[in-house]
Design a protein around this nucleic acid. Sequence first.
DNA 1: CTATTAAAAGACAAAAAGGTCTTTTAATTA
DNA 2: TAATTAAAAGACCTTTTTGTCTTTTAATAG
Lengths: 156, 156
Amino acid sequence: MFHKETEYALRGLVYIQQQNELGHRPGLAEIAREIDAPGFYTGKILQRLVRQGFLTSRKGKGGGFGFGRDKPPLPLRDLILATEGNKILTGCAFGLKECDQDHPCPLHYRYAPIRNALNDLVATATIQSLAGSLAASVPPAREKPDIGSNPDKNIN
Amino acid sequence: MFHKETEYALRGLVYIQQQNELGHRPGLAEIAREIDAPGFYTGKILQRLVRQGFLTSRKGKGGGFGFGRDKPPLPLRDLILATEGNKILTGCAFGLKECDQDHPCPLHYRYAPIRNALNDLVATATIQSLAGSLAASVPPAREKPDIGSNPDKNIN
DNA sequence: CTATTAAAAGACAAAAAGGTCTTTTAATTA
DNA sequence: TAATTAAAAGACCTTTTTGTCTTTTAATAG
């Protein structure tokens, strides 16, 4: 689904947020170890995110990464757009440059709802919601249990 | 969403099928031109698909690509698995090696339905259904209009 | 102020994806 | 059979992604 860079960024930021909530500012070595990601690469990725203003860092003893407490929740969407761009959120499954209701590719009417669901997910889920309370991880009450046209075949 | 290779394969096979239905066996140059893909690269991709048994080819004058008429419909799923593997169909959005109901990542319960919908789509849509009659391209009667939890924000 | 700690910066490299080109092989037609 | 046509094969290249490592900068503690 996402690029490795996006995955590491997601896991890293969620871990940082969780630790921050416990009053701890984790350093790079700890973060990379805990999220099972390559250390130097993770450092480079977090560095970029700091430069882009997604989080703050402190050098030296007692240093590490964290979010300012005044920071508003960060939607996954913002992170994804910053790390890998919008192809996954707006691109055509067939690879057409123009694909919409007026010029639909053969998959459009079945793929667009899936892409919309993904857009909705990344717009509403935030690093904070994923880090805190595990709310997003809890199975929602099954009102809208399945999506797609063949609900029976779905696996979890 | 998919790799370029998968996109070219999808577009190429759909075009071949459409032309076959008209009694025509298109050659590589025509295919690449019509689907707006790089010629030599498309050739390499179709070559692999021929070797894997997805379609047939003939050399020399009047040559080109086609499906045997006895061939059963080809689900997109088979093509995707052959060209880029199963990451997009089974991978965890967070990048965890193990992610299921028993060990869910923070996104699991919201992402799994989306992935299921994608699996359903690629299992039921075939090259033939996309090529013929444009059936798949027609907007379905809106019984299950939106998926995801915030239907309002959906765009098409 | 010095030693230590930890991030910043950036060079470098490996792997994968994407793409080009030439030569060879096989089929058809004149 | 010779000329032509078109795919097969595979070498080669470019770009992007992923990853490693060294050096520099900044902060803190003693």
